[in-house]
Deep mutational scan, measured.
Amino acid sequence: DEEIEKWIETLLKRNISLRVNGKDLEIGSEEFKEWVEKFIKEV
């Protein structure tokens, strides 16, 4: 979905790490990609 890709790009540009389930996810890491894929499937 384009919306999500733009959102991810924005996050990448800002180099933010997300806190997911109490863990810091490094943007661009494998864990982050897995989380994004799960997130996309749920939406």
Results as ranks from 00 to 15, higher is better:
Asp1Trp: 14
Asp1Phe: 14
Asp1Gln: 13
Glu2Pro: 11
Glu2Cys: 10
Glu2Met: 12
Glu2Lys: 14
Glu2Gly: 11
Glu2Ile: 12
Glu2Arg: 13
Glu3Ala: 12
Glu3Asn: 08
Glu3Val: 12
Glu3Cys: 15
Glu3Gly: 08
Ile4Arg: 03
Ile4Ser: 03
Ile4Tyr: 09
Ile4Thr: 03
Ile4Trp: 14
Glu5Cys: 15
Glu5Gln: 13
Glu5Ala: 10
Glu5Phe: 13
Glu5Ser: 06
Glu5Thr: 08
Glu5Trp: 15
Lys6Ala: 10
Lys6Ser: 13
Lys6Met: 06
Lys6Phe: 09
Lys6Glu: 07
Trp7Ala: 02
Trp7Arg: 01
Ile8Ser: 00
Ile8Thr: 01
Glu9Thr: 02
Glu9Asp: 09
Glu9Ile: 04
Thr10Cys: 15
Thr10His: 14
Thr10Met: 07
Thr10Leu: 10
Thr10Ser: 12
Thr10Lys: 13
Thr10Asn: 15
Leu11His: 03
Leu11Thr: 01
Leu12Asp: 03
Leu12Gln: 07
Leu12Asn: 05
Leu12Ile: 13
Lys13Gly: 13
Arg14Thr: 15
Arg14Phe: 15
Arg14Lys: 14
Arg14Leu: 15
Asn15Ser: 11
Ile16Val: 11
Ile16Tyr: 00
Ile16Asp: 05
Ser17Trp: 02
Ser17Cys: 11
Ser17Arg: 09
Leu18Cys: 13
Leu18Val: 10
Leu18Asn: 00
Arg19Ser: 07
Arg19Pro: 04
Arg19Asn: 07
Arg19Gln: 10
Arg19Gly: 04
Arg19Val: 09
Val20Gln: 04
Val20His: 04
Val20Pro: 04
Val20Met: 06
Asn21Met: 07
Gly22Thr: 03
Gly22Trp: 12
Gly22Ala: 03
Gly22His: 03
Lys23Cys: 12
Asp24Phe: 13
Asp24Ile: 13
Asp24Val: 15
Asp24Trp: 11
Asp24Pro: 15
Asp24Gln: 11
Asp24Lys: 13
Leu25Trp: 04
Leu25Lys: 02
Leu25Asp: 03
Glu26Ser: 08
Glu26Phe: 12
Glu26His: 09
Ile27Thr: 06
Ile27Gly: 02
Ile27Glu: 03
Gly28Phe: 12
Gly28Asp: 06
Gly28Met: 10
Ser29Gly: 05
Ser29Lys: 04
Ser29Asn: 03
Ser29Asp: 04
Ser29Ile: 07
Ser29Cys: 09
Glu30Ala: 13
Glu30Cys: 04
Glu30Pro: 14
Glu30Lys: 11
Glu30Arg: 10
Glu30Gly: 06
Glu30Asp: 10
Glu30Tyr: 07
Glu30Ile: 12
Glu30His: 11
Glu31Val: 05
Glu31Met: 10
Glu31Gln: 08
Glu31Thr: 04
Glu31Lys: 14
Phe32Trp: 09
Phe32Ser: 00
Glu34Pro: 00
Glu34Asn: 11
Trp35His: 01
Trp35Ile: 05
Val36Ala: 06
Val36Glu: 01
Glu37Gln: 08
Glu37Ile: 08
Lys38Pro: 00
Phe39Arg: 03
Phe39Ser: 02
Phe39Pro: 00
Phe39Leu: 13
Ile40Asp: 01
Ile40Asn: 02
Ile40Tyr: 10
Lys41Ser: 06
Lys41Ala: 07
Lys41Val: 05
Lys41Thr: 08
Lys41Phe: 04
Lys41His: 06
Glu42Met: 14
Glu42Cys: 15
Glu42Phe: 11
Glu42Leu: 13
Glu42Pro: 03
Glu42Asn: 10
Glu42Arg: 09
Val43Asp: 04
Val43Ile: 14
Val43Ala: 10
Val43Ser: 08
Val43Cys: 15
Val43Gln: 07
Val43Leu: 15
